[in-house]
Write a protein that binds this DNA or RNA. Sequence first.
DNA 1: TTGAAAGCGCTAACAA
DNA 2: TTGTTAGCGCTTTCAA
Lengths: 331, 331
Amino acid sequence: MNITIYDVAREANVSMATVSRVVNGNPNVKPATRKKVLETIERLGYRPNAVARGLASKKTTTVGVIIPDISSIFFSELARGIDDIANMYKYNIILSNSDQNIDKEIKLINSMLEKQVDGIVYMGGKITEEHINQFKTSPVPIVLAATVDASEKTPSVNIDYEQAAFEAVQLLLDNGNESVAFVTGLEETTANALKFEGYKRALKDAEKSVQDDYLIRGDLSYQSGIKAVETLLDLNERPSAIFVASDEIALGVIHGIQDRGLSVPNDIEVVGFDNTRLAQMVRPTLSTVVQPMYDIGAVAMRLLTKYMNKEEVSDNTVVLPHQIIERNSTK
Amino acid sequence: MNITIYDVAREANVSMATVSRVVNGNPNVKPATRKKVLETIERLGYRPNAVARGLASKKTTTVGVIIPDISSIFFSELARGIDDIANMYKYNIILSNSDQNIDKEIKLINSMLEKQVDGIVYMGGKITEEHINQFKTSPVPIVLAATVDASEKTPSVNIDYEQAAFEAVQLLLDNGNESVAFVTGLEETTANALKFEGYKRALKDAEKSVQDDYLIRGDLSYQSGIKAVETLLDLNERPSAIFVASDEIALGVIHGIQDRGLSVPNDIEVVGFDNTRLAQMVRPTLSTVVQPMYDIGAVAMRLLTKYMNKEEVSDNTVVLPHQIIERNSTK
DNA sequence: TTGAAAGCGCTAACAA
DNA sequence: TTGTTAGCGCTTTCAA
């Protein structure tokens, strides 16, 4: 049997209420008593049972984190930001991978709710009606991180994907490129749809038309970048620049170009998205849109703590600043 | 107020014990009763409280995962393996980053124990006496993943680091290299120490001596790989091959060499370690030691489930097979 | 400053 | 097949 608060109380000749008070740092305890209790806690090796505490207090100091894939370099950076802030506020994290599968996402939310998490940080792709419904009926606050809810009903932390993409493509256009292709991941994620909007707006601003064959959709992998480039280079008129929806795909694009004997940026310029560590781990180094992943995670978690404490929050949807960093994959 | 098992019992005209039975899939319930209960659960939107269940049953179906840094491409892959298997066995995961800081590691273990996890998967650097003590006195099983306890007292899942390093260096020597440098990360981790042992053994086998200036220690980053190369290339006699303790550092090494105008593998051959996705995301692609990260995580979690179920385990320390994969950074 | 006692929502004997 | 009941270990009034 484990040592309980009751054992400590008996050994210290006080009531369990008093032990509870010293464990929880309640000031209404005479210093001498506190000392005595602390000593017997030490002596017995008492370890408070957080489950019992959770049942009695209705707080678990645990938050759920739903993430598409923790092994993705992009999401793991977000997760780090979340965990660091969670830690700072004494929360633990229950982490689960969803693979962006809707059924799994809904199941995960419910499973975390059963575990009585005090809040949830949610990362995903497309937010459907079903999601919004879940979020709305949740007994605890939910914050979206790097995930956009088009209806803006759910608190969230993002950057302005449309504008960021617009600026990236504009840079390419300003560099004198006649044609800019767009290589993206799963079309279903709202963030990627917004990037596409920005791409189109930049072209329209430059009075260029959107060409279907300059638009390539694959998955989010390095390999799909290589494949995309093969398609693009087989075109009669190959593009002189490529805007890519993620750094990992962009590395594939760069290598795909180089494998064909062409040069980046002389023959083709490339701009990525995210500014993961990968952007600097390639030659030429990758020009890319800076998305502050760690900060998005950290801010989302911080925002969640406010909701959990029932503090007033002035703005539900926070938009963090982005920027374009020019390295050597552009002229 | 939330819906409890008691509300369901009342509404369905049965006892709470019966409700508990249908929720837990106990077969001793008449089908008609089960149906009735299920319906009122649905109607009331009842959600079982896992905290209360945990307190009553002394099982939380939650395992703790201590990880140095989830944003590391190496560890996040391990974490994915852990989560997938955990999920398969209906466990949730409490994930925390330790940054390989001993105090934090110990604190984390205790915090997870307070939360009454059913078991712990531990990843870290060096295992000290203090760690072993914690592991030994833990009320729940602990399994090490990609983490070696020199005393072999704690269950663990690893590859044979010494032998793997030996083979990698031997490959380089067999390719005719006169001198092989070794670039490694923090010297404190036992795994890296073992890689060093393998490196030395391979040199000794080839009747070569270990030269201090061919041994570079940095942190685990890409940048430290670049720095390491600078040091190496400034030597009077530069090595003709470099064995690197991780893929990320190895990318830095390759680019450092290329930035100096030298060629990999013609001027210098490079072999990495881990076979993370990075190994294929560089030109030339990286020859490396394959460490099955996902599998190590998965097997560690599987092993933990056996301990949690009090099954007999024939061998506490499992050593997974490794291999060397030759790509284009070697001749 | 301290203690007594009533839950928190569930599981698990035990009885019927 | 179903119900009764006693906890699980803690927090939190309420009284003293």
